[in-house]
Simulated assay, not measured.
Amino acid sequence: MRKILVTATFLMLTIGPAAVAQSGNSSSGKQGPWPAPVGHRQPRADQVPSEKDNSSADAAMKREDAELDRKLKSICRGC
């Protein structure tokens, strides 16, 4: 009885994972990952803003930084 139990356990441990890995849904002709839900898709290259579009925001930030540096320099007096 013990030999049968050991043999059954051995077979289940060796053949079991292969049987589970084989049990995919092959009835549909479509292979590959499922499509992402709406709102979770990866943007295409033409949908991403380019660096040139950020130039006005960068220029405004640089102006604000320069103004802040000028104000701090008058407070700090060269520390």
Rank of each mutant, 00 (worst) to 15 (best):
V48T: 10
D65Q: 12
P49H: 06
A45Q: 10
P37N: 03
L11V: 06
H40W: 11
K30W: 04
D65K: 13
D65R: 13
A21I: 09
R70M: 08
S23A: 14
K71P: 00
Q47E: 15
A57E: 14
A59Q: 10
R44A: 13
A60W: 05
V48W: 04
S55C: 03
P43E: 06
R41A: 05
C76D: 15
D46Y: 11
I4N: 01
S28V: 06
S28E: 04
T7Q: 01
A8L: 14
K62L: 13
S23F: 07
T14P: 00
N25C: 05
W34E: 11
T14F: 05
D46Q: 13
V20T: 06
S27G: 03
I15R: 01
P37G: 02
V20G: 01
N25E: 08
G29C: 05
R70I: 02
S74T: 13
A18G: 11
R41G: 06
K3N: 07
D46A: 11
A36W: 10
S50C: 01
S50L: 03
A19I: 05
V6A: 04
C76V: 15
S55Y: 08
P17S: 05
T14W: 02
L68C: 02
V6D: 01
R41M: 07
D53Q: 14
A60M: 11
P33N: 06
R63D: 15
K71N: 09
A18S: 07
A59P: 00
A21E: 05
L5Q: 04
C76G: 08
Q22N: 06
G29N: 07
S56N: 10
H40E: 12
C79M: 12
K62Y: 07
W34P: 00
D58I: 09
R41I: 12
P17M: 02
N54Q: 13
A60N: 09
D46I: 14
S28A: 07
T7H: 02
Q47L: 10
P17L: 03
W34A: 12
D69G: 10
Q47R: 13
